[in-house]
Computed example of a mutant assay.
Amino acid sequence: MVVVYCIVAVVLVLGLALVVMYNRFVRQRTLVDESWGQIDVELTRRHDLIPNLVRTVQGYAEHERTVLAELTAAREQAQTHRADSPAERAPVEDALGRAVTTVLARAEAYPDLKASANFLELQQQLATTEDRIAAARRFYNGNVRALNTRISTFPSNMVASAFGFTARDFFEVSDPGERAVPSVEL
């Protein structure tokens, strides 16, 4: 009789461990999805600010049409990839970020534009948005790292494979130039 109680206790403990592991996976998956949603919100904010930036700069920089056209094209490309996975979306968003940086750098050549309240406000909003995207990216990647680690470590990897939990993609900077240390000349 004692053997039966021991077997029942072991089965109950294993069942409880399985339920706890499963619930942790669900919580982590939900956290990854939520943090991706925050990145998407910030990317959408950037997409919404770009037409205002283009209109503001166009008034001052008529002969910079190619730079503005590239920015507009990059934004449209990013808009078409909104439903893609983070790994597929990262290069497109990186290209958009580079285009915004190029426009802001070219705007330095126009003193009237630099002094324009509209331009300064847009520049500040874009800078804030880029900072928020970076913070959301770090939060998302941290959650992905935790989920992927849990999926690949024993014994939770058995629960993950049994219930179909899969590793997620990181949202990484794909342009090596963005990781390089900037050159400062005085």
Results as ranks from 00 to 15, higher is better:
Val2Met: 11
Val2Trp: 11
Val3His: 07
Val4Cys: 04
Cys6Ile: 15
Cys6Leu: 15
Ala9Asn: 12
Val10Cys: 13
Val10Phe: 10
Val10Trp: 07
Val11Glu: 04
Leu14Glu: 11
Ala17Met: 15
Val19Met: 12
Val20Met: 10
Tyr22Arg: 02
Asn23Ile: 07
Asn23Phe: 04
Arg24Met: 09
Phe25Trp: 02
Val26Cys: 03
Val26Thr: 07
Arg27Tyr: 14
Gln28Met: 10
Leu31Arg: 05
Leu31Asp: 05
Asp33Ser: 03
Gly37Phe: 03
Glu42Val: 05
Glu42Ala: 08
Leu43Cys: 06
Leu43Ile: 12
Arg46Lys: 15
Asp48Glu: 14
Asp48Leu: 13
Ile50Tyr: 02
Ile50Thr: 12
Val54Leu: 08
Val54Ser: 10
Thr56Trp: 03
Val57Pro: 07
Gln58Glu: 14
Gly59Gln: 12
Tyr60Val: 13
Tyr60His: 12
Glu64Ser: 07
Arg65Tyr: 06
Val67Pro: 04
Leu68His: 14
Ala69Gln: 14
Arg75Val: 06
Glu76Tyr: 11
Ala78Asp: 01
Gln79Phe: 12
Thr80Lys: 13
Thr80Met: 09
Ala83Ile: 08
Asp84Arg: 09
Asp84Leu: 13
Pro86Tyr: 01
Glu88Cys: 11
Ala90Tyr: 00
Val92Trp: 05
Val92Asp: 00
Ala95Pro: 03
Leu96Glu: 03
Leu96Ala: 09
Gly97Arg: 01
Ala99Phe: 04
Val100Ser: 06
Thr101Asp: 14
Val103Leu: 11
Arg106Met: 13
Arg106Glu: 06
Ala107Ile: 02
Ala107Pro: 05
Glu108Asp: 15
Tyr110Gly: 03
Asp112Trp: 01
Ala115Pro: 04
Ala115Asn: 15
Ala117Thr: 14
Asn118Ala: 15
Glu121Ile: 06
Glu121Thr: 15
Gln123His: 08
Gln123Cys: 07
Gln124His: 09
Gln125Met: 11
Leu126Thr: 04
Thr128Leu: 08
Thr129Pro: 03
Asp131Leu: 06
Arg132Val: 00
Ala134Glu: 06
Arg137Phe: 00
Gly142Asn: 13
Asn143Phe: 02
Val144Gly: 01
Asn148Ala: 04
Thr153Met: 12
Thr153Asn: 10
Pro155Asp: 06
Val159Arg: 01
Val159Lys: 01
Ala162Ile: 07
Phe163Met: 09
Thr166Trp: 04
Ala167Asp: 08
Ala167Arg: 11
Ala167Lys: 12
Asp169Met: 02
Glu172Gln: 10
Pro176His: 09
Pro176Glu: 10
Gly177Leu: 06
Arg179Val: 02
Ala180Tyr: 09
Pro182Met: 05
Ser183Lys: 13
Val184Cys: 08
Glu185Ala: 07
